[in-house]
Amino acid sequence: MRPVVDYARLREEVMEVAALTNYNRASLIPVLRTVKEKYRGIDSEAMQIIADVLGCHPVEVNAVATFYAFLNPKPEGRFIFRLCRTYSCELAGKEEIAKQLSRNLGIGFGETSADGMFSLEWANCMGMCDQGPAMLVNDEIHTKLTPNRVAVIVQDYKKRPEAHTPARAAEQPLLGENPVECES
């Protein structure tokens, strides 16, 4: 029952960000960030709208989106858990954290939960090496993780208003390769 993405609105949102740089291609990454943040994915239609607004080819938008870890065009969860995998965090015990995260979220790395709520990924160094293990959940940073704290943090996100009704995540418009159409 996911609502169909309103592409006309998406175009306006793209135009708004692009206007800041005179519709120059220089706004491609800010535009992609905006779309990704809002719709959690960047689908074929969105890429073509962006290409049209910025006057470049859709394939170039596709190429840029797949280059950057934070612009992954595939649809992802409302909360993206990114656990640091670099050496300082490894020394600090990231493996246990990884196991605990996977258990609490019920998904493996590179996966998104069925309710569209959570995604779990590895990230490279996020500059919290003195306070590892560290992870980002969207833009929020969590440091000095222990398996116990992970359980609490995950619970906390599950209680957030955005997540309160599990069904709500699924009601958000979501851009993906096969967007779910409204059933009549």
């Binding site: 206007a19 800041l20 740089t21 005179n22 519709y23 120059n24 291609r25 220089a26 910025l54 006057g55 470049c56 080819h57 170039e60």
Partner: peptide, 15 residues
Amino acid sequence: CLPRRRAPLSQLFQP
């Protein structure tokens, strides 16, 4: 690829 069809809304960048 830089679009020429739009009027400049910002002077930040020179396309």
